[in-house]
């Protein structure tokens, strides 16, 4: 197994996630794209852990999973709040920050 096959998988998933974040209008879908990005990072971390023969990457992968769980919790809370106030979760309709 090459190091690069995993790293390329991670890179491809990362780019797909980025595309999702940019292209999606629905807030829930945006969060899902962010999850894909986080997973691609985890794959990278674990690959390097295996390559370097250390367990540090595992620790950080676990931490990222925990942070992602927290992020989803808060993110969906925010989405719910937005929905309750605006009756929509379309990101495009939330343009109060327009300059």
């Amino acid at each position: 197994m090459f190091v690069n096959q995993f790293l390329f998988l991670g890179a491809i998933l990362f780019c797909i996630g980025v595309y999702g974040v940019v292209a999606r209008k629905n807030a829930v879908l945006m969060l899902m794209s962010i999850e894909i990005i986080l997973n691609s990072v985890n794959i990278n971390l674990l690959t390097f852990a295996l390559r370097n023969g250390s367990t540090d990457g595992h620790v950080f992968a676990l931490y990222i999973i925990a942070v992602a769980a927290a992020e989803v919790g808060v993110g969906l809370g925010l989405v719910l709040l937005v929905y309750r106030n605006k009756k929509t979760i379309s990101i495009d309709d939330l343009s109060e920050m327009r300059g």
Binding site: V18, V21, V22, A23, R24, K25, I91, D92, L94, S95, E96, M97, R98, G99
Partner: peptide
């Protein structure tokens, strides 16, 4: 330049990335 400050998150994300 005004359109860049659209207040749309997706656009900001696109520019950032």
């Amino acid at each position: 330049a005004q359109p860049t400050q659209s207040g749309k998150v997706s656009q900001y994300a696109a520019l950032l990335f």
